[in-house]
């Protein structure tokens, strides 16, 4: 699947930017930008997405390297968990009032 914004006529490739706010946390997607190469993408991401100490680490990923599930097949693709609410703790109500459960 092509990535939105990844249009053949854009002069520079699209990069998705992920920032780790602190040690112990995951890198989280914060947005995207266009840059001629990976080094410039990291520098631009620093200027664009971390002007207020938002992060201690940045990943940039070429948008066209990301494979996604098909949004139109959303229903079918994620069907398996439907109706399986016994996978959640709240399904089990008989232990209500019993401590540490």
């Amino acid at each position: 699947m092509s990535t939105p914004g990844e249009i053949g006529t854009e002069a520079w490739p699209l990069w998705e930017v992920f920032v780790r706010a602190n040690r112990g946390l995951s890198h989280v997607h914060v947005g995207s930008l266009h840059a001629p190469d990976a080094d410039m993408a990291v520098r631009n991401a620093r200027d664009l997405y971390t002007r207020r100490n938002e992060g201690i680490s940045i990943w940039v990923v070429p948008a066209d390297a990301i494979t996604t599930s098909d949004p139109d097949a959303k229903g079918a693709f994620f069907e398996s968990p439907a109706g399986k609410n016994y996978r959640h703790a709240v399904y089990y109500t008989k232990s209500e009032g019993v401590k540490h459960l």
Binding site: P4, G5, I7, T9, E10, A11, L14, G31, S32, L33, H34
Partner: peptide, 10 residues
């Protein structure tokens, strides 16, 4: 960037 996701180029 947000506008570009709609199919217009920078």
């Amino acid at each position: 960037s947000a506008a570009q996701t709609l199919g217009i180029t920078r």
